[in-house]
Nucleic acid binder design. Structure first.
Lengths: 355, 355
DNA sequence: AGCATTTCCGAAAGCGCTTTCGGAATCAAG
DNA sequence: CTTGATTCCGAAAGCGCTTTCGGAAATGCT
């Protein structure tokens, strides 16, 4: 590999001052069209491109944003991270910016990590996932007046940018759907409610229950961790109680996988004896036993969207103008069905809705 | 946020020269223990830490490495990416280095992207995944004498660093296992063989077949894409042919999920009528129908390992000394079983091995 | 032709650090 | 009390760019 071309070499080669060449390359208006053309052509001919580190130091623009990895309690790799990063990378690469991935080290807490990140000047903005209802990171970034965007929302979400899916509404839809299928005892496998999304989904479940004239029974609610094991435990408790639910709503697909297992372990057939509905729309849900009915969020391009919005904010846009709420749709596969009774069973085999 | 502390301010505050303070902070031996202590304490008291961009420019060390995202043909998000990044991040953060995630933009090819990345000076090393048998990226990095490590191997792997799992051996083990269960017609759902891992797994399958005195029949081999749909198509072709296999080996778990679906779609019971074995050890395989028997690779800390090795190479270590071959283990769940025959069925219900 | 503009480029001062080099102060030895 | 060797720190030159500023050259005007 030949010695890297520098501005200095390029400028002496062209017989121009460094500053002139720099301005020509950056399309300053005070450079004649002729020399600008000459400079730019020679630059690409010699394969010159400015050293990003030097440029960043000189301009004070980091040309990079950081994605804060969600804390991974249970070493469950988040299935959405890869997709989100791809989208983010797409968005940033159009501008030639870098995507950093960071996580807090065990020794220090996350706000401290973010504080260091922000003050270090390594990045121009950050995106965070899975905010808590009262998220210290968000407050920190707000008070620092640092550009950021949230994948999700906290309780007070008026003053910053976010991209979220209305999971409260989604869970309402799911309850309506189950009620329409005849269910009146609907269980809920929740996640720790310091997560905003966990609270929202619980609210959607509860509120829609009452809206349908059904009681909201706390015995039908289990809060457990965001893993298949968590879901299995939670659903297990529900099923083992007196007067168990005939349907179970789970906060995430991964939990729902565990719920399916819990039902099968007790000799039941999910979708027949007990309905299960998850949330996320993971493709992998097509392969569970039975295929999982789920609330599918349109996360195909959420990363792209987050990136574009963050860039707009870094460019000076008002964060308040970048708040996007998408909605999830019920994707019926085979884990939901009409409420099961002996009568129905004798009359006819309960039909399984098709995917 | 108060104005960021700079070396200059800190040094005038201390009544020392900038250079002196810098050397004190960096533990140069020519600074007296007394002043060094004074400087370091005052630095942390005032919350000073060097601007990374300036340091990187001055030292010429990028203090960052890049992870090249595998090309995502089919928009299938790779389940292992998240875990790998976590491990990589762990390793790098100990040194305070950054982790960049990059991918090639549609407009340019991957080697070109890597060339730019390397010459830009933004990173001190790169890690790449899923190498081809004859990988242009590897050649490029080798000829540039740039520090890198490969997650996997190419055909010629003597001269660079890699971390890989012996999937040839793993597939041999799987064939032995199936033969021991009585199978003699074993199908193979492969991936494009420009991927080294795809070729290795195919080789392991073929060679072990002959080693067991069985013919290697090309009609039992289907090459298809790395997705559940690909696996379903491939397995479907196998099953629809004359004299179909009684067991199917799949290159990845995701493909195996599709194979399970193909069997079920034809009225068969995977693990009973037709055995299926995947590769990856994805946790999600516990929830398929039936739970997938798989070759589990110990990828829990592969990211960490890759990071540590790359750092050692950047520090001047000889890449040849950093080659690590791990092995995968057969994780029996319920998609494999003895070869199915009418006789066996009449004699007794085929038993399903437990997870 | 003469003056006021405008156009275009060179020079220089940073950006915030690191690192080499040399000299002043300190020390031990004669 | 010298001398030579050490110890410790200051000064300055970068790293490779950007950007402001001022002036020379070219242009417009009357």
């Amino acid at each position: 590999m030949t010695a890297r071309m520098s501005l200095k070499k390029l400028s002496t080669h062209l017989g121009l001052a460094e500053g002139t060449v720099s301005r020509a390359l950056n399309n300053y208006p005070d450079i004649s069209a002729k020399t600008r053309k000459r400079v730019q052509e020679e630059a690409i001919r010699l394969g010159y491109s400015a050293n990003p580190l030097a440029r960043r130091l000189a301009t004070g623009i980091a040309e990079a944003v950081a994605y804060i990895m969600p804390e991974s309690h249970s070493s469950i790799s988040e299935p959405f991270v890869s997709q989100l990063l791809t989208g983010l990378g797409d968005s940033l690469s159009q501008r030639g910016w870098d995507l950093l991935v960071t996580q807090s080290v065990p020794a220090e807490d996350e706000p401290e990590m973010i504080r260091k990140l922000v003050t270090s000047g390594r990045v121009s903005g950050v995106v965070i996932s899975r905010p808590h209802k009262n998220d210290a990171r968000i407050k920190l970034l707000q008070s620092a007046k640092f550009p950021f965007i949230v994948h999700g929302r906290s309780l007070q979400s008026e003053d910053y940018a976010w991209y979220d899916v209305d999971s409260e509404k989604a869970f309402g839809d799911a309850v309506d759907h189950l009620v329409a299928l005849g269910h009146s005892r609907i269980g809920f496998v929740g996640a720790p409610t310091y997560y905003t999304f966990a609270q929202a989904r619980l609210d959607g479940y509860r509120n829609t229950l009452v809206a349908n004239g059904l009681p909201s029974d706390d015995n039908l609610i289990q809060i457990c961790e965001l893993s298949d094991d968590g879901g299995e435990r939670g659903a297990g408790h529900l099923l083992d109680a007196d007067n168990p639910p005939t349907a179970i709503l789970c906060t995430t697909d991964v939990q729902a996988f565990g719920a399916l297992a819990a039902i099968r372990a007790r000799g039941g057939v999910p979708g027949k004896h007990v309905s299960v509905i998850g949330y996320d729309g993971l493709r992998i849900g097509r392969h569970t036993n039975p295929p999982l009915t789920t609330l599918a969020q349109p996360q195909a391009h959420s990363g792209r969207q987050l990136g574009d919005m963050l860039l707009a904010i870094i460019d000076g846009g008002d964060p308040k103008n970048f708040q996007e709420l998408r909605s999830a749709e019920l994707l019926r596969r085979q884990s939901d069905g009409p409420v099961w009774t002996e009568r129905v069973q004798q009359a006819a085999q309960p039909h399984l809705p098709q995917c």
